[in-house]
């Protein structure tokens, strides 16, 4: 099971543009490495899609390829307008989904 960390603000003023930072454990096996002992190619296994939603609406997303480093980090912006809930979703090629939620109060 992948483990994720998210830094998203809990409070903001309407109109604030905030930065969100995310990390997740994943080897991001590119399919280009070989097993040193056997010489066999290690099969590709990566997270290929990241989505950030607010109140169910996608405001940022990203396609990842084999060149994203292991334990992927991603930061991006969000413009606060009303209170609600963030949801961050990592989708891996094998269909495994990791998600994390966080509430935002806009004063």
């Amino acid at each position: 099971m992948a483990k994720a960390r998210v830094k998203a603000p809990k409070k903001a003023k309407a109109g604030d543009i905030v930065t969100i930072k995310t990390l997740i454990t994943h080897k991001m096996e590119s399919g280009r490495r070989k097993n040193k002992k056997t010489g066999e190619v290690i099969p590709r296994h990566i997270i290929d899609k990241f989505t950030a939603k607010f109140n169910g609406e996608t405001f940022f997303s990203s396609d990842w390829h084999g060149a994203i480093s292991a334990n992927p980090y991603m930061s991006f912006s969000f413009k606060a307008s009303k209170s609600g809930e963030f949801e961050f979703i990592w989708h891996d090629e094998k269909g495994e989904i990791t998600s994390k939620k966080s509430k935002l109060v806009v004063a």
Binding site: I17, V18, T19, S30, F54, E57, T58, F59, F60, S62, G66, A67, I68, S69, P72, Y73, M74, S75, F76, S77, F78, K79, S81
Partner: peptide, 14 residues
């Protein structure tokens, strides 16, 4: 999207 506020992003690559 316009909800992003800014077209900024960062990550780490190989």
């Amino acid at each position: 999207t316009p909800m992003s506020g800014k077209a900024n992003a960062a990550t780490r690559v190989r």
